Computed example of a mutant assay.
Amino acid sequence: MQYDDFIGEVQHRAQLDSREAALSISRATLTTLSERIDPGQAENLGSQLPEELGRFLEDVDEVERFEFDEFVDRVADREDAGEGDPADAAFHAQVVLDVLEEAITEGALEDVKDQLPSDEGYEDLFEIAESESSPA
């Protein structure tokens, strides 16, 4: 997926007013994700994205262990579009991960999910992608 397509999809699905806002929430989500998953996995994801987005996944060398609420707080602090609202940040992160799933190889997001504890709320990040792939 090309950079313009990725940002356009994020903007559309999150119903944002600008591409800058879409880039902001993409940067916030991908950077935070890179802090929580194995650096090798983050690099793998980053290598499958356009360089402008992949770099957000490739700057961290150590995995931090933090809960879902901290994940959302970090996204909220980093993004310009959500004004620090955790509910908006959680939705924005869901949108970015939904678009990310379409941009990377099949199964790569499953590898990410496997690194996140299922009992801390992280499964909420993947609700959009899972609801679209589930039979209606």
Rank of each mutant, 00 (worst) to 15 (best):
E9R: 14
H92V: 00
A28G: 08
A108V: 12
L16E: 13
G107H: 10
S26W: 05
Q115S: 10
A93G: 13
S34T: 00
E52V: 06
Q115W: 02
V99L: 01
A103E: 11
T105Q: 12
E70W: 00
Q115I: 02
P117I: 00
H12S: 15
G40I: 00
D38R: 13
A103V: 07
Q2F: 07
S18Y: 05
D85C: 01
G82T: 12
P86R: 03
D73T: 08
P135M: 12
L49E: 10
E51C: 02
S18V: 08
S24F: 05
E110K: 06
V60W: 02
S133H: 11
E120A: 04
V96K: 01
I25Q: 14
L57K: 03
L116A: 00
S26K: 01
Q11I: 05
E62C: 04
T31V: 07
L16C: 10
T32Y: 02
D80T: 11
A108Q: 12
F91I: 05
I104H: 06
L125Q: 08
G84H: 04
P86D: 01
I128F: 13
E70S: 09
E51T: 15
P86T: 02
L16S: 10
A129P: 11
T29F: 01
A103W: 08
I104L: 11
E83K: 11
G8Q: 06
S118F: 03
L57W: 05
R55S: 08
R19P: 09
F56R: 00
P50Y: 03
T105A: 12
R74P: 06
S34K: 03
V10S: 09
L100W: 06
L45S: 03
E132A: 15
S34C: 05
F6I: 15
A129K: 15
L30K: 01
F66D: 05
L30A: 02
S26R: 02
D73L: 01
E70R: 09
A81Y: 04
L33G: 03
E102C: 03
I7Q: 12
H92C: 01
V112R: 09
A93N: 11
G54H: 06
D124Q: 15
E130R: 14
S133F: 10
E67P: 01
D98W: 07
E101K: 09
L53T: 05
I104T: 08
G82E: 08
H12R: 15
A103F: 07
Q48W: 02
E106Q: 10
Y122R: 03
A108M: 08
L53M: 07
L23K: 11
P39Q: 07
G46S: 09
Q48V: 04
G82D: 11
Q11K: 15
Q94T: 07
S47A: 11
Y3G: 11
V60A: 14
P50A: 07
S134N: 11
E9K: 14
D85V: 09
E58R: 14
E83L: 11
L57V: 07
I7S: 11
Y122E: 01
D111I: 02
A21G: 09
D17K: 13
I7H: 11
S118T: 09
